[in-house]
Write a protein that binds this DNA or RNA. Sequence first.
DNA 1: AGCGTTTTGAGGTACGTGCATCATTTCGAG
DNA 2: CTCGAAATGATGCACGTACCTCAAAACGCT
Lengths: 345, 345
Amino acid sequence: MDERAGRVTVHDLARAAGVSLATVDRVLNGRSGVRPATAEKVEMAIERIGFRRDMTASMLARGRDLRAHFLLPDGTNQFMGKLADAAQNLGRLARAERGLFEIERIKAMDARALAAGLDAINPETADCVVFVAIDKPEIHAAVTRAHKRGLKLITLVSDLPGSDRQAFIGIDNLAAGRTAASLMGRFLPDGARVGLVAGSLGLIDHSQRIAGFREVIDAEFPSLQIAGPVEGQDAFSLTYETVLAFLKAHPDLGGLYNVGAGNAGLIMAVNELGLAGKLRVIAHELTGPTRAGLESGAIDLVLDQDPEAELRAVWTSIKRLVLGADAADPPHRIEIKVFLRDNLR
Amino acid sequence: MDERAGRVTVHDLARAAGVSLATVDRVLNGRSGVRPATAEKVEMAIERIGFRRDMTASMLARGRDLRAHFLLPDGTNQFMGKLADAAQNLGRLARAERGLFEIERIKAMDARALAAGLDAINPETADCVVFVAIDKPEIHAAVTRAHKRGLKLITLVSDLPGSDRQAFIGIDNLAAGRTAASLMGRFLPDGARVGLVAGSLGLIDHSQRIAGFREVIDAEFPSLQIAGPVEGQDAFSLTYETVLAFLKAHPDLGGLYNVGAGNAGLIMAVNELGLAGKLRVIAHELTGPTRAGLESGAIDLVLDQDPEAELRAVWTSIKRLVLGADAADPPHRIEIKVFLRDNLR
DNA sequence: AGCGTTTTGAGGTACGTGCATCATTTCGAG
DNA sequence: CTCGAAATGATGCACGTACCTCAAAACGCT
């Protein structure tokens, strides 16, 4: 309660609770050998005197680093490259707060490789695993095993709901799909047809975006027709071929919403058919290709998630998971940015 | 360079630089009485051995709190209320990292009150001032005085470029205006007329939004006509009256862009004239009134800045300013969120 | 060379918590 | 009541940096 005089320390807490420092330590750090009644005394005293553990001292005293192991998809996906760069950069900064990041790239869209990567992580050398999930049974199983080994798990960008992961850092993909639909609906005339493109429906972020999009189209713009989705595996050439065929099969398309990557291929297909500017195109993630697409007019709108903001949230989340709830900010959603040609900076 | 063995400490640094601990301390903390040549030896050693000061130990040792004094506008502006709440909340969390926030509300839109508030802050009891700027000469002068007293200054939401403030936390308001124009341009038919509403052009965030809006309309949608801006002082009843008169004076308006607050009054005026749903309305900040406006259809689009994200950035910035560059993340822009009826959560 | 001044060194304590050790008390079952 | 087990207390060191004091050395100047 006394906000102004020196800090409230564990000594004050021990005195207020009428127990020894050793017992306070046992309660604060969840060690065994404390009767529930005693623990409650301490917890009530924490509330009463407003004790908050000083994280600067805590981190110093525990001496150990917070070790996070990242498993990120490799390949030509530019967004994942930005994500890995952001992890690298933030890792350098987090060192000043005793964070130690290990970044490993694994084969994209390959559930077996991801499962193997998860299984290979030793709880002796890492506290925490950060990975982009694939919603397949073998990944659920690997997550359960990792959790049993005592690792903390954080999904990044693409979640794995219902699993043993402790946190998800990424945008609200349902809301992203809804936003796309809401804007697409305002761009297109009644009765138009919209095509959907995804990387893979096995990625829950992709399928959630589609679900959100469908929901709003059905509710608010029921006259619009939806075609697809087709899958391009987030790869350049496959997306090119797939979208080219898709556009040829549906010459009446008025809009295209790509929930995945592979936008370079998509743009190439759109340009090849001379549809740039005629087709309303909404894509995700501001990268080289999508930026070029906005500038050239091939893409109307890009919904973006900021990798740096996500990595900051990851670091915060790691602190929370490993050190306890009051070690860091409460969790918060990553924001969805909307880019048009006119607000590219 | 040795990344894995125990940390690189000041002791290692002293040894590597061939100086004593005391000298290292003098260099690291910018104390006087070090020859340039010696300081350079230390700085080169820092680079060479990759020394990074351990912030957990540093904060603990310095013992002092990081004291930030907030000067936030009072009044009926809901966004400012959210901002103050966010400051309160984050203040509680920042205590665990030795942050101490003092939050003071001062009369809104009153440059004299703000200047007096700035002048009243004692560098003995605060390290840092966080305030919402008003772009008037007397504020520039007060900022200069505060800076001379040794205070660090951070502008929040509304900036004061060209002054002695050390940092600005807020969205890119030029980009916000451009975004609004880009979307408004796509919503309206050729030749339509758009009205502009502001709180006060003395607030640089408001004038920047208008500038960005104008820029894109002129460049991309030159057929659109712009009326206004009119000023509602961010107040409920004045905005109501002003917008009502404005709409009556321009019965041909197809869209309305309010860069300021006072949206409850704006909605009331729009409803009174039976224009809800007919007029395309873009507003700022997701608060009670704008949320209700989205839901009822009186507002089409809300550009939002997240007060909590801004306060997190403020705290990061305070650490950087008071403790030095590697104490925290590098600065980053606050993101602009776009809300439609369909992605309200 | 001798002076005063500036620069550098040596060493200590303090910050608040984590963690370990060992002694002491309390508890519960028989 | 007695004994072993469980719970609690007492104490001390460690973490890496900040900040202080006092002494020693190097410097610039005449």
